[in-house]
Nucleic acid binder design. Structure first.
Lengths: 230, 230
DNA sequence: ACCTGAACACCGTTCAAGT
DNA sequence: ACCTGAACACCGTTCAAGT
């Protein structure tokens, strides 16, 4: 039987291309995550995306945990914005805003990496830039690291809160969840809570919250620089 | 056959007492969590703790998710310290320190409530006190809530980071995990990261980090009060 | 009314067997 | 060497059947 004209790399029905690879697996994971969300992400769904059995993945990936690590790193690729280096405050704001945007844009990214981020090849430049920015502020090395950690925590946990809020809101719109959690009786016995209940239930302004957190961080750094440490 | 002398409430072998209850289930959950950790907490282990089948729990609890909510609220009971009300800064520090301590003391508490804390009868007084403290600072109601949310986020996410670090360290001591994650080659190409690598790998000072975060928050509030909002 | 026993769907992971 | 097929352990949840 003669060989077909079209090369082996362009099959009509999907067929296994040569071998699997770590990169291919991670990209398939990203695809599943973007399309179906974190709850639908598992070894079997990623394998299906690649027309393969789940067990096959274990030749390239040690565990589900490692896949999550790789995936998170992958999602954060090329996330560093251009910075002019004139003012560390402006640079820090730009950096934090860019990273926050990425975390929120990539569906469920914050659910993959709950706090413990392991440094991969795409996270490293991110860290490097953040540290560089803070270094130009004039902080000493040990203070610098504390501030850096605080900044990462701020961005990550606030983005996480925002993402989970948005997901919940979307769910409520689509499916039909309970509209507002029915006010329990006993909240009336807490005066301040009661007085602010309405405001607390209102949709949060995450931009404002983010801005406040960042400005507070900057204020904290400036205090340190001025030597007003209590 | 004559009835035994000892009353029915004091059996030699453990026997089901009357009926189950929500409270009993939550306490059993707390027991499992304290003894075996979050990874060992599931419907079956809680049921076993009560000499009962897992399915029996569903008469009192809607889902695993609800159990987690109830459990977290239970763990945070009576966590509000005495406050003198003289200075809102001092009160805020005392409040935050007490809550942080509780979060860390209760094994895996932060893993139960990942960010989204639903207000239960034990969380409510906590919220009420925090809001009351901030109210005495002179902030307007809407600003107050932003600061409150920032404070909750700070305490919770920092405690979460600390707890997961401690757990990892304990694991490393006991079992024998990889000592230090072997420095990847490519970090050398990021100068600032490289320069600070040693410091970044050093055991973090969570007390200092917490203090910095809280002081920054206070600095942010004071700026707001002074009307220096950018 | 409350609990048991058994089952189902789902998921991470392992392993012998195929090619 | 790489993948399949089948299996195991584990977990949330449901439901008919017992008492």
């Amino acid at each position: 039987m003669a060989l077909p004209f079209r090369p082996a790399t362009g099959p009509a029905t999907r067929k296994r291309r040569q071998f699997l690879s770590r990169e291919e697996i991670v990209e398939a994971g990203a695809k599943v995550l973007a399309r179906d969300g974190y709850d639908a992400l598992n070894m079997r769904s990623v394998a299906t995306e690649l027309d393969v059995q789940a067990a096959a993945l274990y030749r390239y990936v040690d565990s589900r945990e490692e896949l999550d690590d790789l995936l998170f790193d992958h999602l954060m690729a090329d996330c560093v914005p251009g910075l002019d280096g004139a003012d560390w405050r402006a640079d820090l704001r730009a950096f934090a805003a860019a990273w926050r945007l990425r975390l929120i844009t990539m569906r469920d990214a914050t659910r993959i990496a709950l706090g413990q981020v392991s440094i991969g090849p795409n996270i490293a430049p991110l860290m490097d830039v953040a540290l560089s920015i803070l270094r130009t502020s004039g902080l000493k090395d040990d203070e610098l690291i504390e501030v850096y950690q605080a900044c990462m925590l701020l961005v990550h946990s606030l983005a996480s809160a925002e993402a989970s809020y948005l997901e919940l809101a979307a769910q409520k719109d689509a499916g039909g969840l309970r509209h507002a959690p029915p006010q329990p009786e006993w909240v009336a016995s807490y005066p301040t809570l009661w007085a602010l209940a309405e405001r607390l239930a209102a949709p949060p302004d995450f931009d404002a919250r983010f801005a406040f957190g960042l400005e507070a961080l900057i204020a904290g750094v400036e205090r340190r620089l001025a030597g007003e440490t209590p």
